[in-house]
Design a protein around this nucleic acid. Structure first.
Lengths: 154, 154
DNA sequence: CCGTAAGTTCAGAAATTTCTGAAGACAGTG
DNA sequence: CACTGTCTTCAGAAATTTCTGAACTTACGG
């Protein structure tokens, strides 16, 4: 099996993992193309060719990836095609996005705690849940800061 | 609006957040029932009543939650109905499960790195990705350990 | 200014996920 | 040991997500 095939398989697995992590299918596959392409930048046509999907699908996927800050449009110097590439801070960004899920969970727990009496089993149960997510949400920003310090932009 | 209504809304939001985080719909809704119920334990019938869904759906959801270690079956002392409850370590468990997604992403990046030459844009790009996930996966276990130390089982 | 390539949008087709309902298995109970 | 309530399983219905294709918009290039 050629390196090309192995790469493509890895890209597929990556897209699948992103999907399991909550990303929609087409944005995930598109991001995989961005990561594994040989070129510095990519056009929508490139993506459509690579994935064998319609231009419409690519347009939607690129829009999504732009909106969450994972890719950026390059200042295209008088070309007819728009060029895009993965942003340098894509991974910390993605990680942070996922933390908004944690925040919703925390808020749901807090609401439940506020509307139950101490001693109610739900009160205690949700208290444990809140403690955990409060801990996480307090620690994760420090983790990211540590990452950025240890890896000052090249 | 009654506290009951507010609680139920919170439970629904919780289920929705879990779904966005990758959990399937029925397991997520079922877990929400486990968390917000007044009782210490819950039977399948309780869940079906609460959610207004079929016994078949509940059976599948409970099976899923058991398999990932979020709930446990109680040693039922000669009863016809099985009783279940949320496990104490459900949240750390859930968090750890999600890390397996990170691990797949890391492996995909490593595969891509191994099959490209240094200097190839994909090589560099995937290198940055690998560094980030390697960092995360090395730090998160310590984070969980810290949690368990700071909160010794009550 | 046209002509044309590139990108956008969206209605509906296609695929997938999700849920139900009914049949069957199992275990407690009389 | 038969009866009954509980749980499991799974084929197919229902709902939702996902993708396409065609019409439309935009802007470069001649």
């Amino acid at each position: 099996m050629s390196d090309q095939d192995v790469q493509w398989q890895a890209a597929e697995r990556l897209a699948l993992a992103l999907t399991e992590g909550g990303m929609q299918r087409m944005p995930a596959r598109t991001l995989a193309v961005f990561l594994f392409t040989d070129a510095e930048t990519v056009t929508m046509g490139d993506i459509a060719d690579r994935l064998g999907v319609s231009a419409g699908s690519v347009s939607g996927a690129v829009k999504t990836l732009l909106s969450v800050g994972l890719i950026e449009r390059l200042p295209a110097p008088g070309s007819r095609r728009e060029h895009y590439r993965v942003r340098d801070d894509a991974w910390p960004t993605l990680f942070t996005k996922q933390n908004t899920v944690l925040r919703v969970l925390l808020e749901a727990a807090e609401t439940g705690i506020a509307t139950t009496a101490p001693g109610d089993p739900a009160h205690e149960r949700l208290g444990r849940m809140r403690d955990f997510y409060q801990f996480l949400l307090s620690e994760l920003p420090a983790l990211l800061r540590r990452w950025q310090q240890e890896r000052p932009r090249p």
